[in-house]
Design a protein around this nucleic acid. Structure first.
Lengths: 200, 200
DNA sequence: ATTTGTTTTAAACAATTGTTTAAAACAAAT
DNA sequence: ATTTGTTTTAAACAATTGTTTAAAACAAAT
C-alpha cells in the first residue's frame, strides 16, 4: 500500500516548512501552498498540524540519533575504529540536512514531554554502550561524559554555528562546508591526542 | 530617566517567555500575564511584539558574542592565557542563562536578515583578532577555523545538548551542571594538547 | 480645587490561525 | 450506464492573534 502522490507531496512540503520555520511559525497554509495542494488535504491526510509535525519530528530524531547509535554499541570494533567511522558517516549524513541538529535540539527543548516520548531517549543508556566502556578502559580517570561531549561537540557544533559564522567578513569561515568535510579526518586525530594526553 | 517598574516587569517577563517559547510561539498575552500587567501595557511601553523581541534579542546577542570578543582581541595576553580565561568566564556567564546559545542560534537562523542587522556580525572580523593571529603563529598548517570551532564547540555544545542528555537514564550526564563546570579546567588542557599535536 | 499629563483598564478591532463541512469531481467496479 | 468509494475543492467555522481605541484612574503642579 504505497502512499499517494498527494500524500507524499504534502509530507515533503511539511519537511521543508517545519525545518525552515519551526513548529510554531509554520502554517498549514504554508505547507499546502508549498505542496501545491488544497489546504483541506493537509488535514485530510494527516488529521492535524500536531500530528504531521510529530511524524516529521520522529523522522528527524531517527536521523540524528539513530544513525550513530548502531556504531556506538557495536562490540566488534575498536574505539579508534568507532571514532573514525562515526565522524565520517555522521558528517556526511548531516551535510545532506545541515539544519537537522539545530532543528531537533530546538524543538525538543521547547516541548520535551510530548516529543521525548516519541523517541525513546530515556532508553538510550550511554553507560552500557560499547564506545563508553572502551573509553573507560582507556581513560579510567576521566568522566566519559567529557569524551562524548567533545566528540559530539566537535562533530555537530559546526553545523549549528555555520549559518552565523558564514556571515562574518573576510573569512575564516568562507567555504564552511569544505572546512566541515576536512574535519572527517581531523576529528579522529584530535580525539586520539586527547586520549593519549589523558593517560599521561 | 529610570525605567518605570511596570516597564521593567514587562521586559523581564518578555525575557522569560521568549527564551522559553521562542519568538513565534510567544504571545503578547503570555508576556502580560507573566508580568502581572494589563495586555495593553505591553504595546503601550514597547509598541509591538517585533519591537520588544528585538530589544531582548539584541541584549542576548550582546551577552553571547560581546562577552568573549574583548578577550579574543586583547593584544596583551598570550594564546594560553586567552584560552584559560575565556573558557572559564564563558562557562560561568552562560551557566547563568543556559538556554542562551540554543535561543540565539535558533532565532538567528530563522530570521537572519532582520536580526543580523541588529548586531553587527558582519563586522566581527575573526581574521584580525589577536587570538587567531596567535594561533596561526603556533599552528601555521591548520586552518584557524578548526581551532575556533573546536574551542567554541567544546565550550558551547554542552549547553545546547544538556536538556536532552540529562534525560538519559542511569547517567553519564547526571549532574550535567557539575560536569560542565569541570570543563573550565579541562578545555584549556585539551586545547593545549591539540596545539602541540598539530605542531608535530 | 482644577488643570495637566501620564498610566492603566476593558472592550473591541481586523486579521490570521487550524479545522470542519458539504458539495463536487473523479476513478473503479458492476 | 450506474453505483460505489475516494479524493479534491470552496466556503465557512470558531478560536486566537497582535493591536487600537476611548474612557477611567492616577499623580503632580498650579
Amino acid at each position: 500500500m504505497t502512499e499517494s502522490l498527494t500524500e507524499e507531496k504534502i509530507k515533503e512540503a511539511a519537511r521543508i516548512i517545519f525545518m525552515e520555520k519551526g513548529y510554531a511559525a509554520a502554517g498549514m497554509r504554508d505547507i499546502a501552498t508549498k505542496a501545491g495542494v488544497n489546504l483541506s488535504l493537509v488535514n485530510y491526510y494527516y488529521r492535524s498540524k500536531k500530528n504531521i509535525f510529530q511524524i516529521i519530528m520522529l523522522e528527524k530524531m531517527h536521523k540524528i540519533f539513530g544513525s550513530i547509535i548502531p556504531y556506538m554499541i557495536d562490540e566488534n570494533t575498536s574505539l579508534e575504529e568507532k571514532i573514525k567511522h562515526i565522524s565520517t558517516v555522521y558528517i556526511d549524513t548531516i551535510s545532506e540536512d545541515p539544519n537537522l541538529p539545530l532543528f531537533v535540539f530546538s524543538e525538543l527543548q521547547k516541548n520535551p514531554e510530548e516529543l521525548g516520548i516519541l523517541f525513546p531517549i530515556q532508553n538510550m543508556d550511554f553507560m552500557q554502550m560499547s564506545i563508553v566502556k572502551q573509553f573507560k578502559a582507556a581513560c579510567p580517570d576521566i568522566n566519559p561524559a567529557h569524551f562524548m561531549l567533545n566528540f559530539l561537540g566537535m562533530t555537530i557544533f559546526p553545523f549549528i554555528a555555520a549559518h552565523i559564522f558564514s556571515k562574518m567578513p573576510n573569512g575564516i569561515f568562507d567555504n564552511i562546508q569544505t572546512i566541515i568535510h576536512e574535519r572527517k579526518k581531523l576529528i579522529p586525530l584530535w580525539i586520539k591526542n586527547m586520549l593519549e594526553a589523558n593517560i599521561n
